[in-house]
Design a binder for these strands. Structure first.
Lengths: 347, 347
DNA sequence: TTGAAAGCGATACCAG
DNA sequence: CTGGTATCGCTTTCAA
């Protein structure tokens, strides 16, 4: 059963034929002054003093016409804009990440930048970079790691004074906020090892786009356990019940005594399937998630997790601002991901 | 403990001094042709035939300089753009909604529109509308209900050929996708009533921005139960454990035999608190959520929920396209929210 | 087939 | 204090 776009009858008559969009010339005409004067008045230009009556007439005319300046024309003339371009991430974003993004936007707004989300970051950002560059943003903030040195060069050549990537690996020529997801896996693995677990599973989510994080997390696990007697087993898992049930059904055969479930959502999915299968948690198998979501505290047993700390939006905004003001400085590299275990009852 | 912006040393030397941004004039000069010819070649203008050797020279020059056209200049000249502006929603979006948004973007992209997210929709959209209008979008897609007739007028006067709102209530002059959240509450209430429940609680989330949905959902519940012997009790609830525990502690005193928990996340929160308090579900109290998230199926008892159906992104994109092509038509109003109960074990 | 030139809307210099 | 005017980068007639 689908309910889609059921049109309901509407009353209002077709609107009046649209007048053409008013320009500063229209305002000038109506106010009986020149376009220059209009510009001075509406921008409060301090270098020039305009008489009060004139100002009034200009403002009145602008209001009457519903005049709104044309951003493109303005920035064309000015030769620059304060637009920060941020392509939408192409991976499913959790509450953590989306809060971070919102914070960044807000902080950049405070610094008088205009944040614009255009298009989607993805595996082919070097091509997409051309499209982004057409907008002549003063800075570009790219989540994920689809952008290479070529893309950065395109953006810089077309006037971007700062390119910042948010990804596990830095990119030549761009500032980098290094989201070190290895640390997450490292943390989780050390915790499980310390609790006496030796045969450790690592969930690899099926969700497209998540490899960006899951692969480094796995690497972190491997790294933490190198040289110990522990084993690491990859466990592909799609985000649905059937997949979880299948995995749980062959669980005992795997002989694992612990699992790092990628994040809290996958942990919940897997934990439920294991419990349905009669696997005792944490007795038979310890489970740890990541992201420290609310839902982990609501599960029974309460879910152990890796708490992830992202930088404040303000910090990132200030990095962008610094870079814009002084584009000549070498790209900064910041490690911005803090990971720490929150031990609860599932491990 | 906070890990924030730990700078790590970096090797690369400061980049070469940035040349100024190449324009089509530079390309023309390098190719030894006029700017007009450059434009013809790069835009594949069919009205004019350019010799193959010339085309080659132009393309080569463009590539060598890393030329990227200036979108603002182009649309200034053209007198219009294909930008669809979509302010980001100012309420916390669930997976349902964000998938819808992504779909819309994709579908509009297919129709050759450029979707740009700029700023945030909010309670003061009539003021924000001015800022949006500066970008001269050909269409504006506004989630939430902060935009009034005034804001719509501003946008239209500055050239927007279509304004579409996604909200419970229509706005004068704008096309409307009516998200009828009353239907959600209505559905839930009828279900609970049919299952013999009479003293019905309705969770009102504390999350800012959610009143947009919670108020209509409550109204839907009230409406469904009007004229029956059932009672409706509002239950304010913040999205944290303490708040849930407090509510659960006074639960028996409330004497409710059912609760519509706003959505699945709040339902999970409340259900856990009730279970911790020893309240039997569904025996003593029935619980129903909304949004039909995965997590509902993972809870025990499995969570009953209201499944919500949003229109396809393609449909919305086509509405926008229609409106842009023929702005004279009266605003369309569409009911776009389908609601149906998914009965599981919690009710 | 190519080039010269007008003009989109806003701003900032320089005269008056 | 205010008005003419050149200019930003690009497209598109109109002529050659």
């Amino acid at each position: 059963m689908r309910y889609v776009m059921v049109q309901i009858p509407n009353t209002p008559p077709p609107p009046a034929p649209p007048r053409s969009v008013p320009t500063s010339a229209d305002v000038a005409r109506l106010a009986g002054v020149s376009r220059a004067t209009v510009s001075y008045v509406l921008n409060n230009t301090s270098a020039v003093r305009i008489s009060e009556p004139t100002r009034r007439r200009v403002h009145a005319a602008a209001r009457e016409l519903g005049y709104v300046p044309h951003a493109a024309a303005r920035s064309l003339r000015a030769g620059h804009s304060r637009m920060v371009l941020m392509p939408a991430p192409n991976f499913p974003v959790g509450p953590l990440y989306s809060r971070f993004i919102a914070e960044v936007q807000w902080a950049l707004g405070r610094l008088d930048y205009t944040v614009v989300q255009y298009g989607t970051a993805g595996p082919h950002d070097d091509e997409a970079a051309r499209a982004w560059a057409e907008l002549r943003p003063v800075a570009v903030l790219v989540p994920g790691s689809g952008l290479g040195a070529r893309g950065v060069a395109v953006l810089k050549r077309s006037g971007a004074r700062a390119v910042v990537t948010l990804a596990p690996e830095p990119v030549e020529g761009a500032h980098a906020l290094l989201m070190d997801h290895e640390a997450v896996g490292h943390c989780a693995a050390r915790h499980l090892y310390a609790r006496g677990r030796r045969r450790i599973g690592v969930v690899m989510p099926g969700d497209a786009g998540l490899e960006l994080f899951s692969v480094p997390r796995l690497a972190g696990v491997r790294h933490a356990l190198r040289g110990t007697d522990a084993t690491v087993t990859e466990l592909p898992l799609a985000h649905d019940e059937e997949s979880a049930a299948r995995l749980a059904a062959r669980w005992r055969g795997l002989g694992l005594d612990a699992v790092f479930a990628y994040n809290d959502e996958y942990a919940m999915l897997l934990m439920r399937a294991l419990q349905d299968e009669g696997v005792a948690i944490p007795g038979e198998t310890a489970v740890i998630g990541a992201d420290d979501l609310m839902l982990g505290r609501l599960l029974r047993p309460r879910l152990s997790t890796v708490h992830i700390e992202l930088p404040s939006g303000r910090d990132l905004a200030e990095l962008v601002d610094r870079a814009v003001r002084d584009p000549a400085t070498a790209p900064e590299r910041h490690k911005v991901l803090g990971a720490s275990v929150v031990h609860r009852d599932s491990s």
